[in-house]
Amino acid sequence: MIKRLIPLLLVISLFFILLKVATNVAPNYDLTGVAKTYAEQGASDLGAMNLVTAIVVTYRGLDTLGEVTVLFMAGTGIALLLRRKKKKNDSGIKNRAASEILKTGSKLLVPIITMFGAYIFINGHLSPGGGFQGGAAIASAVMLMFLADSSFKINHKVFVLIESFSGIFYVLIGVLGLVILGADNFLDNRILPLGTFGTILSAGTIPLIYTLVGLKVGTELASILDNMKGELE
């Protein structure tokens, strides 16, 4: 019982801390601070309809670059920690073959989901969603392939190349801002024309970056899944 008592005490103490927050929060009625600036200027500054995207990709682009890095590094780390035996034949004999329906269904679905993912990240500046959500959709397409065909293997070389180059291009686009616009313009989306507000080819580099992010996140998540699924060394 004593073993439960300390955790209980700690959780109760935490409860009081959080209670203090809960009882003191007044609901917002207006935008303040930087949010207000974003709401007022975001559209004209960056030409993105989706303000969250504008913030994520441009205003706080450095964060997103970091976020991509985190995911990339987690993928690298997982691959490193779960490195597999090279010799063992991963024929997947043990696994049951998936049902015919699933196979056919996935063959149909995979391209659609992939397309959907691509749609999400290309339209990131116009509608909800973006690189991460689109990437996740692509990864789920890959996941479906795993389910449908247990012997399915992702082509690591291609994946690594996509991952690498989307990342490098992302950094390069950022650096282009420095080169073209000046020292304070890392990741500035305005190195491309902002275009017509509300169209696909608008908001400068945002669609481009989100496409790169989408590809990168998609391949990374897929690799993580693949590594988690694979056999251990």
Binding site: N28, L31, V34, A35, Y38, A39, G42, L51, V52, A54, I55, V56, R60, D63, T64, G66, E67, F132
Partner: peptide, 10 residues
């Protein structure tokens, strides 16, 4: 407010 949303995304 879009800011917390952007943060949560990350």
């Amino acid at each position: 407010d879009p800011v917390p949303q952007a943060l949560v995304l990350t």
